[in-house]
């Protein structure tokens, strides 16, 4: 069995179900499996933003959830908050807020972020209470496990796992090489 030996590949390609920034026609697709409470993902968030500024329309970026719930007690709820914002077309705004405030992911903060983004807070809170986004987050997690995600953050460049670092230079080099 060579599945582990080969450079792991994304088993579920980016599609309409994904949250994507950048044009669908971009030559490079960067996919991140991340956890909003993971400090390494917080660091990677800045790198990704810089890479997107530099590469511009020649890349697109998709974010999938990989919450490590047993070590990050707020990670699952934060992922649900991003999805709940997503149903009101504010996924990326919430995604950015969560990564910019990784030490403030408790429910009262999530509700404040929802209000700041002018979401329908009642609907947002109801979706968190009833955990309607859990299956979707689980789908992301499973696709990650099947694709060789072994920790967070894990990136894929055009469907192939990026095994280098996630500092600006490493990510920029990996994305540029795929252009």
């Amino acid at each position: 069995m060579s599945a582990v030996l080969d450079r792991p590949r994304l088993t579920v390609p980016v599609s309409a179900r994904d949250h994507v920034r950048g044009p669908a026609t971009a030559p490079v697709t960067l996919v991140e499996y991340g956890d909003f409470e993971c400090p390494f993902c917080g660091a990677a968030h800045n790198s990704v933003n810089h890479v997107m500024q530099i590469i511009g329309d020649r890349m697109r970026f998709a974010y999938r959830h990989f919450p490590l719930t047993q070590i990050h007690p707020h990670a699952q709820q934060a992922a649900e908050a991003a999805e709940a914002a997503g149903t009101q077309d504010r996924f990326w705004e919430m995604h950015d807020l969560l990564f910019e405030h990784q030490d403030r992911l408790g429910m009262q903060y999530l509700l404040a972020y929802a209000a700041a983004l002018r979401l329908d807070v009642e609907r947002f809170a109801l979706e968190l209470d009833t955990h309607v986004h859990v299956p979707r987050i689980r789908e992301d997690f499973s696709s990650g496990v099947r694709s060789g995600v072994n920790g967070t953050p894990t990136f894929f460049v055009n469907g192939i796992r990026h095994d280098g670092g996630y500092d600006l230079e490493s990510l920029l080099t990996a994305v540029s090489a795929a252009l």
């Binding site: 069995m1 599945a3 582990v4 792991p8 496990v145 099947r146 694709s147 060789g148 072994n150």
Partner: peptide, 20 residues
């Protein structure tokens, strides 16, 4: 039914186990 030795510095993930 399946065995795998990973390079010591590489986290082998769970995909191989699940495939098995």
């Amino acid at each position: 039914r399946w065995s795998y030795v990973s390079p010591v510095g590489v986290n082998p993930g769970a995909d191989g186990i699940l495939i098995a």
